[in-house]
Structure formats: structure tokens, C-alpha cells
């Protein structure tokens, strides 16, 4: 049974929280709570992992809560001594503002997630910044690790509005040019564009020495295609329409979505990029877990 904190991992719940800073806090707390309740232990905002106690370790480092649960001695291993600069890269395309069920749009889902990640990173004292783009980079916030940075991030994220067409590859090249040090780039996008130029842009980021996590966010309707009967579909960026039999096309469409994701998954694996396929109906913990795993690998 989900705890009160954990319920904030659900998009439909977090949607009811209007303030972004609270959203971020609730999501992270829910995530941390879930981590402690689950057998998958080892992460927290204060320390990076647990390890078995061995004679010679400081007794003060023993995590007594874990001992109480497992009857074994674990000590907390504290965060890495070096900090990792993170960039929350937000796609402002019109398609990101889409929601079928009038719940969280892809963009709202993205900024909620981005806020939570920003929250996590600031609490880990990692410098974190924000870059938003559509046809080109529109907004940016330099990465910092101060506590005040979180407010700046949340403020910027809250002010972003998705609209119009997007040029993901061009923007990513621009982003790559903006980053001088090795960073962790966290891209939030529906990637609805030609794959090949996007792939090249991602490789550019990787060749520049950056680590990349792609949060590939689709609307729940885009991922599950819940339509029935004859429907007229309209692309909100290009205004193109197509009349289709939803029941007949569903299997093909889902196959295409899977193929679309599989294409990115394969390219990302080749480029050693973390690829996290998401849709707006999915809880946030998956995305956060991906970040932490990535963070741990680089810590």
C-alpha cells in the first residue's frame, strides 16, 4: 500500500499540486520513501549507497534503521567528493503541450520531473542548470549548486510554455556548444522529429564528453492509443489531419511506437546514452531511478 509520500509519484496526484516547488518536493520525498520501503536500498539524498560493515569502519556510520530491518550491519557510504554538473534540457515544442485526457501535458510531466531532479541534485550539492529550446535555445539558467538555485530553476521551469514547431537537432547542437565542462545532460522531449538528425545531435553531445539521459516523454494517449471508431487526428504543430479507423490501426500504431522507441533505444545503447521511455500516465520514480543509477555510475 502506497504511503502518503509515495502517492505523489503518480502523475494524477501530483497534477493536483499547483506549486512546482511542492511538486518537486513531494515527488522526491515519495521516491525516497519508496526506496526505503522497498528491498532496493542504497540511495538517499545524503549518502550515495550502503555497504556491509567491515571491522575498522566508523561505528557512527552504521545505519541502525537498516540493521533494524535486516539484522545486518550496513554503513552509509557518503556522496562522491566530486560534483556533477547537470543540465535540465526542456523541449518547448507545441506537441509537448499536448494532453488527451486533460491531465498532465507532456510538458507539465517534464517540468515536474525536471523539478524533482533539480531538487534531488541541489540536495546532493550538484550544480544544475536549465536550458529550454524550441527552434533554438530560448531560455537558459547556468548551473549552480546553491540552495537558492532550486528556486531559480523552479521559477524558470514554471515560466516555460510549449508552443509552435521545434528543431531538436539544431537546438541540441546549440546546447552542446553552450556547455564547457563535462556535464550530465537530461533531455526532456517527445522526440517527434526525424530520428537521424536527432541521433547525430545526441552523438555530438556524447563526443563532447557529456553524459546524456533522455527522458522520452509521450502522452499516455500517444503511447497507448485509447481511441475507438473513426477519428480524425490532427497534428497540432503542422495542422495536418488524417481520418483513421482507430480500432483497425491501433495494433499497427502501437507497433510503430514500439519501433520508434526501439530505434532510439538501440541508438542510445550504441552511444552509451541512458534512454528512459515514459508516458504521462507513468509514475515518476522510474525516471528518478534512472537518474540515480546514472549518477551513481558517474559518482
Amino acid at each position: 500500500m502506497a504511503t502518503t509520500a509515495e502517492k505523489f509519484l503518480k502523475p494524477e496526484v501530483i497534477r493536483q499540486v499547483a506549486r512546482l516547488d511542492l511538486r518537486a518536493k513531494f515527488i522526491v520525498e515519495g521516491f525516497i520513501s519508496g526506496l526505503h520501503a522497498s528491498p532496493f536500498q542504497g540511495f538517499s539524498v545524503e549518502f550515495s549507497e550502503h555497504r556491509k560493515y567491515t571491522p575498522g569502519d566508523n561505528i557512527a556510520d552504521i545505519d541502525w534503521n537498516v540493521y533494524a530491518k535486516t539484522d545486518r550491519y550496513y554503513i552509509k557510504k557518503f556522496q562522491a567528493e566530486t560534483n556533477l554538473t547537470g543540465y535540465l534540457v526542456m523541449d518547448l515544442s507545441g506537441s509537448m503541450g499536448y494532453t488527451y485526457r486533460q491531465e498532465l501535458t507532456k510538458f507539465e510531466y517534464s517540468i515536474s520531473l525536471a523539478a524533482a531532479l533539480g531538487y534531488l541534485m541541489i540536495h546532493q550539492q550538484d550544480p544544475v542548470g536549465v536550458i529550454a529550446f524550441d527552434q533554438k535555445v530560448r531560455q537558459s539558467l547556468s548551473p549552480k549548486s546553491k540552495r537558492t538555485q532550486l528556486a531559480n530553476i523552479l521559477s524558470l521551469l514554471a515560466s516555460l510554455k510549449p508552443s509552435g514547431e521545434t528543431a531538436i537537432p539544431k537546438s541540441l547542437h546549440q546546447v552542446a556548444g553552450m556547455m564547457r565542462h563535462r556535464s550530465l545532460v537530461m533531455l526532456f522531449s517527445d522526440l517527434l522529429g526525424d530520428m537521424e538528425p536527432i541521433r547525430q545531435a545526441l552523438y555530438r553531445l556524447r563526443f563532447s564528453g557529456h553524459d546524456v539521459i533522455i527522458f522520452h516523454i509521450l502522452d499516455e494517449a500517444e503511447a497507448l492509443f485509447p481511441f475507438e471508431g473513426m477519428v480524425e487526428l490532427e497534428d497540432n504543430e503542422t495542422r495536418e489531419t488524417l481520418l483513421v479507423d482507430a480500432d483497425g490501426i491501433k495494433a499497427d500504431y502501437l507497433e510503430e511506437v514500439e519501433s520508434f522507441r526501439a530505434g532510439y533505444r538501440k541508438e542510445c545503447r550504441n552511444a552509451r546514452i541512458d534512454y528512459v521511455p515514459l508516458h504521462t500516465g507513468m509514475p515518476f520514480d522510474k525516471a528518478l531511478m534512472s537518474y540515480l543509477l546514472s549518477r551513481q555510475a558517474r559518482g
Binding site: V231, L233, N236
Partner: peptide
Amino acid sequence: KQTPKHIIFPALRLIRER
């Protein structure tokens, strides 16, 4: 005769690709 429901659907390009 049914009047088709009009739905905004950004992933239309996937159908086109297909």
C-alpha cells in the same frame, strides 16, 4: 453515418511513417 471524432494528436507523424 458516424461523424468522426476530431482529436489533436501530435504523434500523427508516426502513423504517416507507418
